[in-house]
């Protein structure tokens, strides 16, 4: 099963839409220093209100995480997961593969895990290249906290991918399923910083998986395992539960 998962991951990496995702991530890396050079006044004011500081790195991290990465993981999760099972059923690949000795729930789990793997690969690759590029282009950039924050946020990207794949198979039709994924993920992304806007909602906002992924932004000066590991574990558990729900929902699907 491990080899099948590995081959499926490699196959998912070779799909054409991965190039689209690479292009979008590259655009984010290249465009952010331009945006950061002249940050919008309302964003700067919000940063001062939420984080109580005029630290340009905090501002950069907010712009990178919320304005770029959060939107990208919501969009690209739907793009990458859009092929899991339903496209294979619609294009006729599934009748061939469903006759093999792997149940559909397990096949869904493998396909979703490998798609999550592709998202994580693209995400982490972007962060590594970004860390190098921003070190040269952004004044006050700190690669250590940047990468530490990414090591948590990547789990939000993985969760988003699992959720998009699961919503697709739960809805059962590609168009509405993709739309449901976009709506759900953009709702979660839209509310991700609600705990920062209003500290009274900070605890309840932790129910939002994307909020868990951005928790490190409140602790940029003291990022350590205590800040990163608990929300990362919560995201891993949520991802597992989401994939399990998707696998359960495909058990009656006919190839």
């Amino acid at each position: 099963m491990i080899r099948f998962l590995w081959l499926d991951y490699r196959a998912a990496l070779r799909e054409r839409k991965v190039w689209f995702a690479v292009a979008i991530f590259a655009y984010a890396v290249l465009s952010l220093p331009v945006l950061v050079a002249r940050p919008p006044a309302h964003v700067q004011a919000a940063m001062e209100a939420w984080f109580g500081a005029r630290d340009p790195f905090t501002l950069f991290m907010f712009m990178w995480t919320d304005l770029a990465m959060n939107k990208l993981i919501a969009t690209l999760a739907v793009v990458l997961a859009g092929g899991v099972l339903l496209r294979e059923r619609d294009t006729g690949v599934l009748p061939l593969l469903a006759a093999k000795p792997i149940s559909l729930p397990r096949y869904f789990a493998v396909r979703t895990l490998s798609t999550c793997g592709v998202m994580a690969t693209l995400y982490l690759g972007t962060q590594l290249i970004g860390a190098l590029y921003f070190s040269a282009m952004v004044a006050g950039f700190r690669p250590g906290p940047f990468l530490a924050a990414a090591s948590l946020h990547v789990w939000a990207a993985v969760f988003a991918t699992a959720l998009a794949a699961t919503l697709l198979v739960v809805v059962g039709r590609r168009g509405p399923g993709l739309l449901a994924g976009l709506l759900a993920l953009f709702s979660l992304v839209g509310m991700a910083f609600i705990g920062f806007y209003n500290p009274a909602w900070a605890t309840i906002s932790l129910l939002n998986p994307i909020s868990l992924g951005v928790q490190s932004l409140a602790h940029l000066d003291a990022l350590g395992p205590g800040v990163i590991v608990p929300p990362a574990l919560a995201l891993i558990l949520l991802t597992t539960a989401t994939i399990t729900a998707g696998a359960w929902s495909v058990r009656k699907l006919e190839a």
């Binding site: 196959a11 070779r14 294979e88 294009t91 006729g92 690949v93 009748p95 061939l96 006759a99």
Partner: peptide, 11 residues
């Protein structure tokens, strides 16, 4: 098994 109607993964 070879079904009558199927497609191969294009990539």
């Amino acid at each position: 098994y070879l079904p009558a109607d199927y497609a191969l993964p294009p990539d």
